[in-house]
């Protein structure tokens, strides 16, 4: 009885074969469009004569670096990201702390507080546009009544007010996400740590800073990065509310990409803006994944 000598490096084809369908699908729906998008950024393609685009090397990128609109968008994106993240986080933390306490209507309130997140973005925008309306808006009405302002404000047509309005809407729509993540984080903090702090002489404020906040650190990093990433990627809400205006005051990078491609029809240049956005998102994603891995290994 002789056995066949086993070759040391025989390739086992079965796993590769089984993975192949998924691989093909991934390449088709993910990798191919990204490669297309990036390669498009080296052409001067316009939407109406899509097939006539000429290869122009890195000219789009040269132009990008000198484009005031691009730098404006980068600044707007940073401001929008920072403000909306901060307000969303604070609202989420406040409600998470509230819902982490025991009281009778807790289950009911938790459901209510999740609603903004469940509403489609466009519907949320419409609700806010009505509330912010200079003539019929309830917000202006209340603020005038309360004496904060003399006359109704034109929130969405004034460049200094459009960003605050957008940040308000974003925070209102996104805070349930922050609340849920922070609530989960709060519930992982052992009760004994609070009790130890009470015995050690810490009052409510000390307990918040010495037990609660440090206890939330693993979820904080992930949540903050997630909120920033979301604000970079957000199109529907901003486009439906301001289209990037007035006077480009809310034109984030994703809106600039959209406007360049479909308003100005310069799809080649839009691809270059999109690629720049992609690089920024990639950097944040890398930080995000590192944070996740680190919080896992810490736990």
């Amino acid at each position: 009885m002789s056995t066949k000598p086993q070759t040391a490096r025989r390739i086992d084809w079965l796993p590769i074969l089984l993975l192949l369908p998924v691989g093909v699908v991934l390449v088709l729906i993910l990798i191919w469009p990204i490669v297309q998008g990036i390669s498009l950024s080296f052409f001067n393609t316009r939407i109406l004569n899509y097939s006539q685009g000429k290869f122009i090397g890195i000219a789009n990128y040269n132009f990008l670096l000198q484009d005031e609109n691009f730098w404006n968008s980068l600044r707007v994106t940073a401001i929008y990201g920072a403000l909306s993240m901060s307000l969303t986080y604070l609202l989420g933390l406040g409600f998470a702390l509230l819902l982490n306490r025991n009281f009778i209507l807790r289950g009911f309130l938790r459901t209510i507080f999740i609603l903004p997140w469940a509403i489609p973005e466009v519907v949320a925008v419409l609700i806010f546009m009505w509330m912010l309306d200079p003539q019929f808006g309830v917000l202006n009405y209340l603020m005038v009544k309360a004496g904060f302002i003399d006359r109704p404000l034109a929130w969405l047509t004034q460049s200094s007010l459009a960003m605050p309005a957008l940040v308000m809407l974003t925070a209102w729509q996104q805070f349930p996400l922050a609340m849920l993540i922070l609530l989960a984080g709060l519930q992982t903090i052992p009760r004994e740590q609070y009790e130890a702090a009470m015995v050690d002489g810490a009052g409510p404020i000390s307990r918040f800073f010495h037990v609660t906040l440090p206890g939330l650190r693993p979820v904080n990093v992930i949540l903050i990065l997630l909120l920033i990433l979301n604000s970079f990627r957000r199109v529907t809400m901003i486009y439906a509310m301001t289209r990037g205006g007035p006077a480009r005051s809310t034109e984030t990078l994703s809106i600039l990409t959209y406007n360049t491609a479909f308003e100005y029809q310069k799809i080649g240049y839009a691809a270059a803006v999109g690629t720049a956005l992609l690089i920024i998102l990639l950097i944040f994603s890398l930080i995000y994944f590192r944070a996740i891995i680190r919080s896992r290994s810490a736990a």
Binding site: E192, Q193, H210
Partner: peptide
Amino acid sequence: FQNYALYPN
């Protein structure tokens, strides 16, 4: 405490 309840940070 049983689980020590040290402040992890």
